[in-house]
């Protein structure tokens, strides 16, 4: 083959300035964004906190579900506040709030991540199929999305729990069922735009099948919206779970969850005297959702140059 001798210089002349990969640019941008950096560090600490839950129980000597009525409650039956024995105070049954917070973090993170991943997978599949095939398939799937979006989630959740009984898998299931729709809509829109691109036509002219095109050509181009929306879905799942637990439909007591802790604190108006029962779980919930949202926004700015320019 002699064709390569045509213009060897053109092909071999390596560019002097190396282009950075998109991953490198995203990381560089995130490292410069102080808010994202703080949010990410907070989340790392939170994961360590959750992982260290048994360790904390060992150090304090207070297993999560054990009641310390002698040390945790005053003779009058009022829980003791933050101090050397109970670092973040004790609850109305004499349990350690710090240890329960750590175990609650496990529930929140597991529910948040698992439910978001499951919801994202469903949303991506439905969105890609609806957007790619269009026509009747799109009509049916889009109406399904509308249908799910119009179901009042609390009513449905209440009904399901009263029939099936509260449990962790059920609350994850309920959260997944109600949160895949928004991602599906976004993905559908993106796929409709991508489907028109010339590289999809090129793949078709090579003889690629529909599923080959969907997974090998279209899916990689959806990385940015998927990462962004999945990150933003985690905090809403956490709040979702807390809401369900607060209403007594999520995690079954005596297992700890942030929503359950808030519910117990408000249940018998104990928070009027024991402020720590509301403050610490409330702050944990607030900062966790805030951190995920800030990180999601940062990722969006880093991955999508258009919003980045507006942000500046």
């Amino acid at each position: 083959m002699s064709a390569h001798t045509l213009t060897p210089a053109a092909a071999t002349a390596a560019p002097e300035v190396k282009q950075r990969s998109s991953l490198r640019m995203t990381v560089d941008y995130l490292l410069k964004d102080r808010a994202s950096l703080i949010a990410a560090s907070f989340l790392v600490l939170l994961v360590l906190f959750a992982l260290a839950a048994p360790l904390l129980a060992g150090i304090t000597g207070h297993p999560a579900n054990d009641q310390f009525r002698e040390t945790g409650l005053t003779p009058a039956g009022v829980p003791v506040g933050p101090g050397t024995e109970f670092w973040l105070g004790a609850d109305q049954l004499g349990r350690d709030v710090l240890v329960r917070l750590a175990y609650g973090a496990r529930v929140s993170l597991i529910v948040g991540v698992v439910a978001s991943l499951a919801a994202a997978s469903i949303g991506i599949m439905v969105g890609m199929v609806a957007g790619y095939f269009g026509g009747k398939v799109d009509t049916v799937l889009s109406r399904c999305i509308d249908l799910v979006m119009s179901v009042p989630f609390l009513l449905a959740a209440l009904a399901l729990v009263s029939v099936l009984g509260a449990s962790l898998p059920l609350s994850v299931g309920v959260i997944v069922f109600f949160s895949w729709t928004s991602l599906a809509r976004v993905i559908r829109g993106q796929v409709i735009a991508l489907r028109q691109r010339e590289f999809v036509e090129a793949a078709r002219s090579l003889g690629a099948g529909h599923w080959g095109i969907i997974f090998r050509d279209i899916l990689p181009n959806l990385a940015a919206p998927i990462i962004i929306y999945a990150t933003l879905m985690i905090p809403s799942s956490i709040v979702f779970e807390a809401t369900l637990s607060f209403l007594g439909m999520g995690i079954v007591p005596p297992d700890a969850s942030w929503g359950g802790m808030l519910a117990e604190a408000s249940g018998n108006s104990i928070y009027l005297t024991a402020w720590w029962l509301v403050l610490f779980p409330g702050l944990a919930l607030l900062f966790t959702t805030l951190a995920f949202n800030v990180l999601g926004d940062g990722l969006r700015d880093a991955l999508d140059p258009r919003t980045r320019r507006k942000a500046k």
Binding site: E198, F199, N221
Partner: peptide, 18 residues
């Protein structure tokens, strides 16, 4: 497909960027 192939206009759009 083994007999006829196509080269597209837009060198930016016809290659999958990812």
């Amino acid at each position: 497909r083994h007999l006829v192939q196509m080269v597209f206009q837009d060198p930016f759009g016809s290659l999958n960027p990812k």
